[in-house]
Design a protein around this nucleic acid. Structure first.
Length: 424
RNA sequence: GAGAGUGUAGCUCAGUUGGACAGAGCGCCAGGUUGUGGCCCUGGAGGCCGGGAGUUCAAAUCUCCUCACUCUCCCCA
């Protein structure tokens, strides 16, 4: 093979597109229903947007970004996530002067240079929704409910919705000090990997999957018990509202997320049926993000979902994915003299709104009919020189193997009527 | 970044203790019907056996390196 796709990236072939369209369309409908406006930001941002927004010290910034200097000397980075760029746009485009909060939804490719695995790619696609400009716990609740609805509407089956609060600048630092002291006290009982994390990123030790660590920290102090009154109340309201919305949640006191900007609510949704697919959707509140980007204090919350992962989960639940849409009509012809008339007919059909595939390739009728069969078209129009002389064509119903003569004149309109009648 | 496994035609895979031109099924193309698909029959195209180096009289088969994929870990979507 001469050339290969970049490591960890993938081609999305035509037969996979129905799943993708379903994911995109489901998200679009949901955004409309929840009142989100669509925002498209550049795939590239100034590197500083992510350095400041996502945070130095996070895995994403330290080792997973695709950064480069362009020919003009600008430091640019392929977005590893949406939120920082969306906030940058919110600030730069003056969205502070719109009615608050502003609800923004995005969808597109994101890039992280980590080790590829199942449902994990270096270029992957996310859906993203942000509510910027309010601290209201109802915003958090709405996002959790929306993320869960998205999974349900896609048909992902049973989901686990994990929710936690990571506190605020008032209650988190004291807790971190307490946690650090606790962990340092039993550093020798932690796994080697977690020993290093004690100083670098103590919160991450909490959701460690290493057995020895889990055993060692069974009685670790939880932030849940040390939240300040405001955070405690906020978290309680989020849980109540989500529950009222009929979404079942699990409190996950050990859940932390790897991005610096999270405050208060964090949540993750995974498939109960396909736990191997990893986190399907995840998000939380980021009241400090705007200030990290040198903007005025602006609260916000959001979530992102990995489309590849959701499709993976979808396939685990439903094994007969929708087939790509077949054309309505295949247009075949016999003899060079009929080619022009057939080609013109195909164009006329398309202008009438009928999907038509023309028998490309100067093939014989047999080969064209075989192609017609493979495309799945329900109807074939055969333009033959003999019939053409009388202004007629053959109209063949592929499934029924029946065919009849039909006038070429007005055929598009006649077929449109016929297809409308046969449609469910 | 760490560990393990896999890599033969577009796809799914055979290929015996290293031995002569590398195979099957499906798919693709063509013919069997001057102008008709699905089933059947016949034929054809398509592989430097992931790539490179080495061992050997001889390598798809053994060794090393490299690339890609899969699965854990890490991290997350």
């Amino acid at each position: 093979m001469a050339y290969q796709k970049p490591y960890g990236m993938h081609d999305i072939l035509p037969e996979e597109q129905p799943c993708w369209e379903r994911a995109r369309e489901t998200f679009r409908v949901l955004c409309e229903r929840y009142g989100f406006g669509r925002l498209d930001t550049p795939v590239l941002e100034q590197t500083a947007v992510f350095l400041k927004g996502v945070g130095e010290g996070t895995d994403i910034v330290d080792k997973e970004m695709y950064s480069f200097t362009d020919k003009g000397g600008d430091d640019l980075t392929l977005r590893p996530e949406f939120t920082a760029g969306v906030m940058r746009a919110y600030l730069e485009e003056g969205m502070r002067s719109r009615p608050q909060p502003v609800k923004l939804a995005s969808i597109g490719p994101t890039f992280r240079r980590d080790r590829p695995g199942a449902g994990r790619y270096r270029q992957f696609h996310q859906v993203n929704a942000e509510i910027i400009g309010t601290e209201d716990a109802a915003a958090d609740a709405e996002l959790v409910a929306m993320a869960a609805s998205f999974g349900a509407a896609l048909g992902l089956g049973a989901l686990r919705v994990l929710v936690n609060s990571t506190g605020c600048p008032a209650c988190k630092p004291p807790y971190l000090a307490k946690l650090g002291a606790f962990l340092r006290g039993r550093r020798d009982r932690l796994s080697p990997l977690d020993r290093e994390r004690v100083d670098r990123n103590p919160l991450r030790v909490l959701d460690s999957k290493e057995a020895e660590t889990r055993a060692a920290i069974a009685d670790v102090p939880l932030l849940r018990d040390d939240l300040c009154a405001a955070c405690r109340g906020h978290f309680a309201e989020v849980r109540t509202l989500v529950a009222r919305a009929g979404v079942e949640i699990e409190e996950a006191p050990l859940l932390v997320r790897g991005l610096d900007y999270y405050t208060r609510t964090v949540f993750e949704i995974e498939s109960a049926a396909a736990p191997g697919a990893g986190t399907l959707l995840g998000g939380g509140r980021y009241d400090g993000l705007a200030e990290m980007l040198d903007g005025p204090r602006t609260p916000g919350a959001g979530f992102a979902g990995g489309i590849e992962r959701m499709i993976l989960a979808l396939k685990a639940v439903e094994r007969a994915p929708r087939a790509p849409r077949a054309p309505d009509v295949f247009v075949a012809y016999i003899g060079a003299a009929a080619k022009e008339a057939a080609f013109t007919l195909a164009e006329d059909l398309r202008r009438t709104g009928i999907s038509a595939v023309f028998g490309l390739g100067d093939k014989g009728l047999k080969a064209q009919m075989k192609l017609a069969d493979r495309t799945g078209a329900g109807l074939a129009v055969i333009v033959g020189e003999a019939e053409l002389a009388e202004g007629k064509v053959q109209l063949r119903a592929m499934n029924a193997s029946r065919q009849e003569l039909a006038p070429l004149e007005g055929l598009p309109a006649a077929l449109a009527a016929r297809l409308a009648r046969e449609a469910p």
